[in-house]
Amino acid sequence: MNAKELEQLLLLEQSGELSPAQRRRLDAALAASPEARRLRDRLHRISAAIPAPAARPAPDAAARIAARLRQDQAPARAFRPAWKPALAAAAALALLVGVRTFHAPAPVSSESAAAAAEEEDWTDPLDAEFTELENLLLAISSGDSLEITEL
């Protein structure tokens, strides 16, 4: 195991994301190598030294958030531009069609697509596309300049 790989396993250990196989490999490396143990100590030392941020939100932050939400609700209902929901719907449709075309050669039912999207596996490409969809819709509705990648 090289140093880079060892550090990755130590980082995953710290975050509680080691697979059983990775756990076994790391345990073997730690048992065999004093340098591996020193690297782990150094990582813990950095983690322990991180100071909590001194800054705090304003005491009335929650009240101001609630006020903004109330404020946003009324104008949104009264003056909501008609093109925004239409554009969002068109974008959603285009993306979903694109996702299906790219990832599923055979027709996929909406139920199975939804079930796939519900899976928590981060490596699922369909999930990544849904994430892009979420961000696109959020950007459209908030007017941000969000970069759309991987499409």
């Binding site: 800054a55 939100p57 304003a58 932050a61 101001r64 958030i65 903004r68 939400l69 946003d72 999207a117 519900e118 849904f130 979420e134 819709l137 959020l138 509705s141 908030s142």
Partner: peptide, 23 residues
């Protein structure tokens, strides 16, 4: 700190306003 406060509020407002749309 003022910008952090502004972002903090903006994050919550966007999160709540768009919560129903997504899964």
């Amino acid at each position: 700190p003022g910008e952090a406060d502004e972002w903090f509020q903006e994050t919550w407002v966007r999160a709540i306003e768009h919560m129903n749309i997504f899964r």
